[in-house]
Design a protein around this nucleic acid. Structure first.
Length: 267
DNA sequence: AGCGGAACCTGTCGGC
DNA sequence: TGCCGACAGGTTCCGC
C-alpha cells in the first residue's frame, strides 16, 4: 500500500495517539509478522514507554525506552488501528498500552514486517537505504544518476538509491517533469536533474498535505482516507486523455506497472 | 550492472 | 452463478 506520504501520515497519526504510552502486553495472532520471537519483544519492550514515532523512507520506527527500536514496514496492505476495539480476522499482532487500549497491526496479505533494531546500529545501513526522498539535494541526485545507467523509473523506486518513492509517485513525478520513465539515468543534464529533484519534493509534499493516496487499501489509523488520488495525472489512468496535452495515457508492464503520457514524456 | 520473473499471501474484480 | 486469470501501492532472491 503505502509510499512515503502515506507512511508520513500514519506516523503523524500515531504520534498523537501512542506517544508516552507504556506497552503492557504484546500479542501475536499470526506468525512471521514479528521477525524475532515474541519472547524477545516482550523482554525488550514490556513496561517500556514509547518515546516517539518517526519515519525513514517507507519504514515506521517506534523509539522505545531502552536500547532498541521497533521498525515496521507496511508493505502492501499493512495498517495500524487504534484503538482497536472490535474483533477482526486481519489483526496480526497487537500492543496493549497502559491506558488499556489496543494498538493493532492489520494486514490482509501478511507481507508487513515488525522487527527489533538495535539503536547502536545504523538503521539506514542495516536496511541499505538511500537518502530519504524528502531530503534529496539536486547535486547529490545528479551524482547518483550519473553513476548509474538504468531506466529512470527503475531508479526512482529503488530504495537503495532514494528511500520512500514507490510506483504511484514515481509515475506522477516523471509525468510532472515531462521525463520518460525509460530514459537512462546518466542521460539527464543538470537542468533536468534540478527539475526532477524539485518535483520529487513538491509532489511528495503535496501528497502529504493530502494525507496520501487512497486507492484500494490505504487508510489512516482512524480509518479516514487520503485525498491525493484526486490529483493523479497518470497512475491508473491508461486510456484517459493526458490533462496536459490530450493524448491517451499508456500503461506498460515494466518496472511494476508504468503509466505515462507518450507525448509529454518523450524519450 | 540491471532487468524480468517468481515468491511471499489474500482478496477483489472483470470476462466468459 | 461460477470459475479463472489478472491484478494490487513492496521487497527480496534468482537467473539471464
Amino acid at each position: 500500500m503505502p509510499e512515503l506520504p502515506e507512511v508520513e501520515t500514519v506516523v503523524k497519526d500515531l504520534q498523537s495517539l501512542v506517544q508516552n504510552k507504556k506497552i503492557t502486553a504484546i500479542y501475536e495472532y499470526r506468525k512471521n509478522i514479528f521477525k524475532q520471537p515474541l519472547q524477545k519483544l516482550e523482554n525488550f519492550f514490556l513496561q517500556k514507554k514509547i518515546l516517539d514515532v518517526f519515519r525513514y523512507g517507507k519504514y515506521i520506527l517506534f523509539d522505545i525506552q531502552g536500547d532498541y527500536f521497533l521498525a515496521t514496514h507496511l508493505r502492501m496492505t499493512g495498517k495500524f488501528i487504534f484503538p482497536a476495539i472490535a474483533k477482526n480476522p486481519y489483526y496480526r499482532v497487537a500492543f496493549i498500552l497502559d491506558n488499556s487500549k489496543r494498538l493493532a497491526f492489520h494486514d490482509v496479505r501478511c507481507f508487513g514486517t515488525i522487527e527489533i533494531i538495535a539503536k547502536k546500529d545504523s538503521f539506514v545501513a542495516v536496511k541499505k537505504l538511500g537518502v530519504d526522498a524528502l531530503k534529496i539535494q539536486h547535486k547529490k541526485l545528479f551524482v547518483l544518476l550519473k553513476n548509474k545507467k538504468k531506466k529512470l523509473k527503475n531508479f526512482l523506486i529503488d530504495q537503495q538509491q532514494i528511500a520512500g518513492i514507490g510506483n504511484i509517485y514515481a509515475c506522477e513525478i516523471l509525468h510532472r517533469c515531462g521525463l520518460s520513465p525509460f530514459r537512462l539515468t546518466n542521460s539527464l543534464n543538470e537542468q533536468e536533474v534540478q527539475h526532477l529533484s524539485k518535483n520529487i519534493k513538491k509532489i511528495l509534499k503535496l501528497a502529504i498535505v493530502c494525507n496520501g493516496t487512497s486507492i484500494s487499501d490505504y487508510q489512516r489509523v482512524d480509518n479516514k482516507t487520503g485525498k491525493f488520488q484526486n490529483f493523479l495525472m497518470v497512475y491508473k489512468k491508461q486510456g484517459c486523455p493526458c490533462q496536459t496535452c490530450g493524448q491517451k495515457i499508456e500503461r506498460k508492464k515494466e518496472a511494476q506497472s508504468t503509466f505515462y503520457c507518450p507525448n509529454c514524456q518523450k524519450n
